[in-house]
C-alpha cells in the first residue's frame, strides 16, 4: 500500500490499479458464514471470540449466506447435509471461497468408513484451503483465513468478473437445482 502513495505538490495521492484497491477492500472484509456441522464448529466459535478475535482482520460472521464471502466447512458432513450445504453455497454471492476445516471436512476423517459421511467437502464443493487437525486450533483457522486473503490479493478480480467465472472443476450435486 505504501508503495502506491505518491507525493505531489499539494499533498499525497494514491496511484494504483483498480484491481489492487478492490482487492485491498475485499481481503479486509472477509465475512464468513456462521455455520458448523460438528465439533469443529466449537473451534470456529472460539476463533470469533475475544482471544483469537478474527474481527481484527475484518473477518466477522454473518448469519446468512447472502452476506458471506467464505464458507467454512466446520465439521463432519453427512450425505443428507451435503445437499443443504451446496444449497447454502449456491446462495452466496460471487466472489466466494470455501475452507475445509478439520479432518472430517478434508477427507471424512475418523468417520470415513461410515455409511452416512461424505469423504471430504471437495467432493461436492470447490475447496480453496484445507486445514488439518481434529479440531484445528483457532490459530490454524486464522491462518487458513489469511491464506484466503493472500489468494484474494493476487486475484485479477475485475478481469475475472467480466469473463464467465464458472470453475470447470467445480463438482456439483446432481438434481439439486
Amino acid at each position: 500500500m505504501d508503495a502506491m502513495v505518491e507525493q505531489g505538490p499539494e499533498g499525497s495521492f494514491v496511484l494504483g490499479k483498480v484491481d489492487d484497491l478492490l482487492n485491498l477492500a475485499r481481503k479486509n472484509s472477509l465475512w464468513y458464514m456462521l455455520f458448523g456441522t460438528a465439533c469443529c464448529a466449537i473451534e470456529l466459535m472460539q476463533t470469533g471470540g475475544p482471544r483469537s478475535d478474527a474481527d481484527r482482520f475484518g473477518m466477522v460472521f454473518r448469519a446468512t449466506p447472502r452476506q458471506s464471502d467464505t464458507l467454512i466447512l466446520a465439521g463432519t458432513i453427512t450425505y443428507k447435509m451435503a445437499s443443504r450445504i451446496r444449497l447454502l453455497y449456491e446462495q452466496m454471492a460471487e466472489p466466494k471461497y470455501v475452507i475445509a476445516m478439520g479432518s472430517c471436512a478434508n477427507t471424512g476423517g475418523l468417520f470415513q468408513e461410515s455409511y452416512a459421511v461424505v469423504n471430504g467437502g471437495d467432493l461436492f464443493l470447490p475447496v480453496d484451503v484445507y486445514i488439518p487437525g481434529c479440531p484445528p486450533r483457532s490459530e490454524s483457522l486464522i491462518e487458513g483465513l489469511m491464506l484466503i486473503q493472500q489468494k484474494i490479493e493476487k486475484e485479477p478480480w475485475l478481469k475475472k468478473a467480466w469473463t464467465n467465472t464458472k470453475n470447470p472443476k467445480d463438482p456439483q450435486i446432481e438434481g439439486l437445482l
Binding site: 450425505y79 451435503a82 445437499s83 477427507t107 471424512g108 470415513q112 461424505v118 469423504n119 471430504g120 467432493l123 461436492f124 463438482p171 456439483q172 450435486i173 446432481e174 438434481g175 439439486l176
Partner: peptide, 9 residues
Amino acid sequence: TYRGIPTTR
C-alpha cells in the same frame, strides 16, 4: 456414488 458424489475417496 450418491447424486454424483463418490462414496469412497
